[in-house]
Design a protein around this nucleic acid. Structure first.
Length: 845
DNA sequence: ATCTGTGGCCACCAGC
DNA sequence: GCTGGTGGCCAC
């Protein structure tokens, strides 16, 4: 593609630059490509005003002739004009044939907002794509997050050669007969093995106070002047700019010496200094900057009359962005469930800066007495700086883990980092699948094209769910020594790959395929064509299992390489895991339940057949859940037999997951604990480990687990039992004597929706929340204790020791331990000996 | 405006 | 007191 630069064209020649994003400047009617050059830490902007006209494509793939006529007859086309109409040919995967469409290029992507309602509705039925940059990037062969250079005014991707180790592994692992898939896998390796550069960035945090008590300054009105702004940059920038106000004492500087504190008198000066800093960075990091910090800065700058062109912030509908770079609002990243669970192991629960930073980097906001608006200048600077610092550190800990993760996801999903950081996993997968369609010149189906009859779907085990899921087996309760856990690597993605599952292959249109029924379902499978989702998800699955799982085993890898591989592996895990779920989620644009239904059905068949095969080989299976089986053997030969069988008969990879010294199953599913050879304990599902349980119970539970981890042979259980008894008795005595601090008796339960949405039943944590004066929102964790009388609960802050309903805690202790002891063949009452717990609390007179 | 899935256990609520 | 339903957290 030919591009002209806004200025100083030569400086771009042959420099390796990372593509951050492509945006459309609707005002100037041109595309803006944002590049970053890591070596010199420079920002490059390309303004595309080439023959590729300012750009709008209506219709995701193009439009059919009916709609084209409609468009032409409408004289008025919003503020935009049709510039060019091109005939294009696409492949309709569902009908398995070619179709002709028209691609309309107009001079303003905002036309859709300007057209009349009848046309708007028509466009809606065509699912017009106003995400112009997706088309733009695809049309120009651009992938965000990878390196390009400009040679002779053309943007050329930088070629990276695969390392020798990589080539060796790919040669070993790839099947000779799957050429098409292999090509895809190699392409993934080339894409994902590109180096992950450090992205120069700065975090920003602002402090504003309203004059009125209890009124939080709103960013829309930006009514109050900003008092201070703090920055922490990847280039060691540490700075706080404070606007001096007469009423505040200057105070004493207790910040580290390398933090620069700059005083200014006017707000204008404060903002201009800030903008000058922002312009030096291609990436700015905030916590809630979309809704507050950047929005406030932008609106405030407008308000005090700073020229629009001198404000480097651009406000979008849902995000605040930099004109010259990207903005990552970490609040929106950490609220993403996939990031929370898969990338950060569910370490944090709430999504405030304080909650996330204390969980991930062990640092919290500065606490102080009284009102923040009364702090002295230096005290405020310290507070402000600390917020900016922890915001920055959330992107830098573990060697920039988060930034690297976002960059890798950006490469996989073909989505700019700023969008990756804001949008949910279904959007990543949408973007990835759309890109795949465009590359294959395939029509992206509309929701209406993907219809199915509800009767053909299996019925779910759980009421309220749409289809049947994984299979959980009854555990053989009791203690089992020497147990091996086998599990299928990426079961669902593997099924999608091996069984050719995709929206156009499950229940396909070919008559001759209708006999290829999936056992236990109504669905048949296409044997004539490869499904597009199957190939894509399959290739991702293969690159993870055949490549990134093997690479760390290679010798001689540098630390950087190891790190790259672990980050990529993590990102692949997140996306693979979600790709099956997205196909079964109604809001997903390529939602087609038969695929999800077929996936789990095949999964159930696979685990059932595997267990049968184990039994044929005299291997006792004591438990299984969805993709795993627990066998009572540590015999390597037997394990190898199973692995080979799975490989040959199922085309599935059955891995040795772990070996337990012993496992104890209760009679319940999803409830067990296992002790490994080195003494580490796995605890699954027990009430005692759940996060909402009071510490009083949890401490007792873990102390018992600790005793049990010391058990080597069956004889040791007696001893463990004794120790547990002594420990519980001690703890119960403390409870009885009111010597347990109230905090340790507190439950922590999250509001999953706004308080007023709890209609019908009112759960305890909601009752407690209502007793508080504070305004509790969705996502907040309510901390409360169980009390005698009243609502039966009180928020921790309002409770006193004499309120506590000790009997409730006694009951919980008993049920928690019964669940655990059940697996050992004991009961709580029995373990406590002749004295019943009740007698401890309420001795008979 | 945003949102990946089902299976399973527990405590509690609300109605009978 | 029983029971079906709700809500929360966890396993996979």
């Amino acid at each position: 593609m030919a591009l002209k630069t806004a200025s100083n064209q030569n400086k771009y020649e042959n420099i390796e630059m990372l593509l951050l994003s492509a945006t459309y400047d609707g005002f100037r009617k041109k595309a803006v490509l944002k590049f970053y050059e890591p070596k010199n830490k420079e920002i490059y902007l390309w303004h595309d005003k080439s023959d590729h006209k300012p750009y709008c494509l209506i219709g995701r793939d193009g439009i059919d002739s009916n709609f084209l006529d409609e468009l032409k007859t409408k004289n008025k086309f919003g503020p935009g004009k049709i510039l060019k109409i091109e005939k294009i040919t696409k492949i309709d995967l569902l009908q398995d044939k070619k179709i002709e469409l028209w691609k309309v290029i107009a001079d303003n992507p905002l036309v859709i907002g300007g057209i009349d309602n009848s046309l708007r509705n028509l466009i809606k039925t065509w699912e017009a794509d106003i995400k112009y940059y997706e088309n733009y990037m695809y049309d120009n062969g651009l992938i965000p997050g990878i390196f390009y250079k400009i040679i002779n005014n053309k943007i050329i991707p930088v070629e990276f050669n695969l390392s020798e180790q990589a080539q060796t592994i790919l040669k070993q692992e790839l099947n000779d007969n799957e050429t098409e898939l292999n090509e895809k896998i190699i392409n993934w390796a080339k894409l994902l093995d590109q180096p992950l550069p450090e992205i120069k960035r700065v975090s920003l945090d602002i402090e504003v106070f309203s004059n009125e008590i209890n009124k939080f300054p709103g960013a829309d009105e930006a009514e109050y002047p900003i008092r201070s702004i703090a920055f922490v940059g990847s280039d060691n920038l540490k700075e706080v700019i404070i606007r001096k106000e007469k009423e505040h004492p200057i105070g004493k500087n207790t910040l580290e010496k390398d933090v620069r504190i700059k005083f200014v008198n006017e707000e204008k000066e404060l903002l201009e200094n800030t903008f000058e800093i922002l312009r030096k960075y291609p990436c700015v990091i905030t916590y809630n900057g979309d809704d507050f910090d950047l929005k406030y800065l932008h609106n405030r700058a407008n308000k005090i009359g700073i020229n629009k062109s001198n404000i480097p912030i651009q406000m979008g509908r849902i995000e605040a962005n930099l004109k010259h770079g990207i903005h990552i609002d970490l609040y929106r990243t950490f609220i993403n469930k996939s990031i929370q669970i898969y990338a950060f192991g569910n370490k944090y629960k709430e999504h405030t800066l304080n909650a996330v930073s204390s969980a991930l980097i062990g640092k919290s906001k500065i606490e102080f007495e009284g009102s923040i608006s009364e702090l002295s200048d230096y005290e405020l600077a310290k507070y402000n700086y600390n917020d900016a610092l922890i915001t920055y550190e959330l992107t830098s800990f573990n060697d920039d883990l988060l930034m690297k993760l976002l960059l890798v996801i950006s490469r996989i999903a073909k989505m700019p980092i700023n969008d990756v950081s804001r949008l949910g996993v279904s959007n990543w997968i949408r973007s990835m699948l759309y890109f795949e369609h465009r590359t294959a010149n395939a029509l992206i189906p509309r929701k209406d094209d993907l219809k199915f009859e509800e009767e053909v779907i299996s019925s779910a085990t759980i009421k309220g769910k749409k289809y049947q899921g994984g299979m959980v087996f009854e555990p053989k309760s009791g203690i089992h020594f020497n147990v091996t856990v086998l599990d299928f690597a990426s079961l669902y993605p593997s099924i999608i790959k091996v069984h050719n599952l995709s929206y156009e292959t499950v229940r396909c249109n070919h008559k001759e395929d209708k006999q290829n029924i999936i056992k236990g379902t109504n669905h048949w499978l296409c044997k004539q064509r490869k499904g597009i989702a199957s190939t894509l998800i399959g290739s991702l699955r293969d690159i993870r299992i055949k490549y990134y799982k093997q690479l760390p085993k290679m010798k001689g890898l540098s630390k950087n390489e190891q790190e790259l591989y672990s980050v990529v592996s993590q990102a692949l895990k997140v996306i693979l895991n979600a790709s099956y779920g997205a196909l079964g989620a109604e809001m997903f644009p390529l939602y087609y339940l038969p695929v999800a239904d077929a996936t789990t059905a095949i999964g159930r068949n696979i685990i059932k057949e595997t267990i049968e095969e184990a039994q044929r080989n005299d291997i006792e299976v004591i438990y299984g859940d969805t993709d795993s089986l627990f066998i009572k053997s540590i015999d390597n030969n037997k394990i190898e037999i199973m692995r080979n069988w799975a490989d040959k008969k199922l085309e599935m990879e059955l891995d040795l997951d772990k070996t337990y010294r012993y496992v104890a199953f209760s009679t319940l599913k999803k409830n067990y604990f296992g002790v490994m050879k080195d003494g580490t304990v796995d605890i699954k599902g027990f009430t005692g480990k759940k996060s909402h349980i009071p510490l009083f119970i949890k401490d007792a539970f873990y102390s018992a687990i600790n005793e049990l981890s010391l058990v080597e042979t069956s004889k040791d259980f007696e001893n463990a039992k004794n120790n547990i008894r002594i420990d519980i008795k001690k703890r119960n005595r403390l409870l009885k004597n009111e010597e347990i601090p109230l905090e340790k008796l507190a439950f922590n339960i999250m509001l999953s929706k706004p308080i007023n949405m709890y209609t019908g039943t009112v759960p305890q944590h909601v009752r407690a929340a209502k007793l508080l004066n504070e305004d509790k929102k969705k996502g907040d964790i309510i901390t409360f204790v169980k009390t005698i009388g009243g609502e039966g609960v009180k928020p921790l802050q309002l409770a006193k020791k004499q309120d506590i309903d000790k009997r409730k805690y006694e009951d919980l202790m008993k049920s928690t331990f019964d669940q655990l002891l059940d697996s050992l063949g004991y009961s709580f009452d029995e373990i406590l000996g002749a004295t019943k717990l009740e007698d401890l609390f309420w001795p008979k007179k």
